[in-house]
Lab assay of single mutants.
Amino acid sequence: NNDALSPAIRRLLAEWNLDASAIKGTGVGGRLTREDVEKHLAKA
């Protein structure tokens, strides 16, 4: 759900053309954090 994404995370996902549903969020309530996105990018 994009409503739970911060503007910074939305921008990062758009910049790298990533799908938020493909990344497991570790923040409060399962929210994506910058670290989650960076770890996903490191694996790719």
Results as ranks from 00 to 15, higher is better:
8 A>C: 10
33 T>F: 01
29 G>R: 05
14 A>I: 10
34 R>F: 15
26 T>Y: 02
6 S>D: 15
8 A>E: 15
32 L>S: 00
38 E>V: 12
13 L>C: 15
6 S>R: 05
34 R>C: 09
44 A>P: 08
34 R>K: 13
10 R>N: 09
21 S>A: 13
28 V>R: 10
43 K>I: 14
8 A>K: 05
40 H>I: 08
24 K>M: 12
1 N>I: 13
21 S>N: 14
23 I>W: 03
23 I>V: 07
18 L>I: 12
20 A>D: 04
22 A>S: 12
37 V>G: 00
28 V>I: 14
12 L>S: 00
39 K>G: 09
23 I>R: 01
5 L>H: 07
4 A>H: 14
2 N>L: 12
11 R>D: 15
25 G>A: 11
14 A>E: 13
41 L>R: 05
26 T>K: 02
37 V>I: 14
9 I>V: 12
7 P>E: 15
8 A>Y: 10
33 T>S: 04
19 D>P: 07
37 V>Y: 02
18 L>K: 02
32 L>M: 05
26 T>L: 05
6 S>Q: 05
13 L>F: 04
6 S>F: 04
25 G>Y: 02
35 E>P: 05
4 A>F: 14
31 R>H: 07
19 D>R: 05
30 G>N: 05
41 L>N: 04
39 K>R: 14
41 L>M: 08
33 T>W: 01
25 G>N: 03
41 L>W: 08
15 E>W: 12
12 L>E: 02
33 T>D: 01
21 S>D: 11
8 A>R: 05
1 N>P: 14
30 G>P: 02
23 I>Q: 02
42 A>Y: 08
18 L>D: 01
13 L>A: 00
4 A>K: 12
23 I>M: 06
11 R>W: 15
34 R>D: 09
36 D>E: 01
6 S>P: 12
6 S>G: 09
43 K>T: 13
22 A>Y: 07
12 L>N: 00
37 V>K: 00
41 L>P: 01
23 I>K: 00
27 G>M: 02
21 S>M: 10
14 A>M: 11
35 E>M: 08
44 A>R: 11
12 L>P: 03
33 T>L: 08
30 G>A: 03
8 A>P: 05
1 N>G: 13
10 R>S: 08
11 R>I: 12
24 K>H: 10
25 G>S: 05
24 K>W: 07
42 A>S: 10
22 A>V: 11
32 L>C: 04
3 D>T: 10
12 L>K: 03
40 H>P: 00
14 A>R: 11
10 R>P: 01
7 P>Q: 13
42 A>N: 10
36 D>V: 01
38 E>L: 15
20 A>M: 06
14 A>L: 13
29 G>P: 03
27 G>V: 02
43 K>V: 11
2 N>S: 13
33 T>V: 05
25 G>P: 10
44 A>L: 15
23 I>D: 01
10 R>I: 15
9 I>Q: 02
17 N>H: 11
22 A>T: 11
